[in-house]
Design a protein around this nucleic acid. Structure first.
Lengths: 214, 214
DNA sequence: TATAATTGATTGACCAATCAATCAACAAGA
DNA sequence: TCTTGTTGATTGATTGGTCAATCAATTATA
């Protein structure tokens, strides 16, 4: 059964408001975003109309996160990459991380979530769930698996996962939040290559261990 | 000439207000912190008194940053560590990074600055200047120097510096902002040791390069 | 006509900033 | 020593403005 005309209109207008709200929230943050601005950005005539579609401002904010945040999710197909070689997996992961956060909208979204997360545990939990938590736990599992295979030397998988993702995150921060002059001269590709390179050289099993694992 | 009674009182009260403001700003952020709360936290009777010591709320905020943020500065004595061995320098740097951000006050300060920085370029610049910018540029210079000496293999120093600091920052974030369950089981010491370990193994000059550099 | 969408006006709360009035400490003069 | 004037600190009340949320009235749709 296809959605009726009403339902389409309703859902369409809802999405329209969410999009408007996203752009304003991203620019101003939750507190400083006014319903007036959101209404203007969403091209609806009145702030009052927001309350026809959402309970209140916090509800609108929550739905913006829920419905637009998945855009930040990294493409991490589950088990099929578990046995691919580290260099390939890490390079893909690194590039897709920087790529998904490349455009102005995802970056604004990222900044907004980070800004709200530091003081609103609910947002922090939500952010964590769709981004860092998911990514790190996948990576940690992958690394642990590769350690089991003897491809990588054994270390704390959680710490190792942070050792790979940390550099990329810091690169993003220095470039997008603190606008460091030297960060602009450093390209994303260089950063990914360097991070993969140092990490893999550092995680290679050395001679003694290689012998032990035989 | 010692400060007169009046001057002491004045400066003392000023510091008192700054301390109160710090605790409230850290808890609520700039926008949501009210002058009433700040006055209460600073144990002064009236919000109006704030304007006897500061121009406005933004001025107060700025002075809180200027006078309390230096607590976040890492102990990085200049040139005397340039020739110390990498393992020692990095371990010291990593530990002091986690140590200075250990207590509840610096952490609150850190979160506050991060939260404001994503949205206020002025704060971002200030934050960058006292923390990330300073730390990364020092580390990049040190690493470049060690590359010149042939102790470390040659890579982009800026990228390499991010490869070392990134993991520690991410560790801090996963622990303090996103309260990841597995982050609590991972100790700061383990994190520093692992980061140093992976980074140094990855930055070691390999055989061919070692020969080349002779 | 009935139902849902939309508007604009309104309410009530909150808050930064101002300001006139009070207070406490001290100093000068008698 | 008392009195009076001066200064800066402090207070509480007020102002002007903003904004989320509500609601009654209006318009479009089916």
């Amino acid at each position: 059964m296809s959605p009726s005309r009403d339902e389409q209109d309703y859902e369409g207008k809802r999405q329209q408001i969410i999009d408007g709200a996203l752009s304003v929230f991203a620019r101003k943050g939750f507190e400083k975003a006014t319903n007036r601005e959101i209404a203007d950005a969403a091209r609806i005539g009145s702030p009052g109309l927001i309350y026809h579609y959402f309970n209140d401002k916090a509800d609108l904010f929550r739905q913006v996160l829920e419905e637009r945040a998945p855009a930040l999710q990294l493409v991490m197909h589950g088990d099929e990459m578990m046995d691919l070689p580290p260099r390939q997996v890490l390079t893909t992961l690194g590039n897709s991380f920087l790529a998904t956060l490349g455009g102005p909208v995802p970056i604004a979204m990222f900044k907004m979530m980070l800004g709200e997360a530091v003081r609103r545990p609910v947002v922090a939990e939500m952010f964590n769930k769709i981004g860092p938590g998911r990514g790190l736990s996948f990576l940690a599992r992958y690394l642990a698996h590769q350690m089991d295979l003897g491809v990588l030397r054994r270390t704390d998988p959680g710490a190792a996962a942070r050792c790979f993702m940390g550099p990329l995150l810091l690169f993003l921060l220095t470039q997008q939040v603190f606008v460091q002059p030297d960060a602009s001269s450093l390209s994303g590709e260089t950063m990914v290559v360097t991070a993969v390179d140092i990490f893999l050289s550092g995680m290679q099993v050395n001679e003694e261990e290689r012998e032990e694992s035989v």
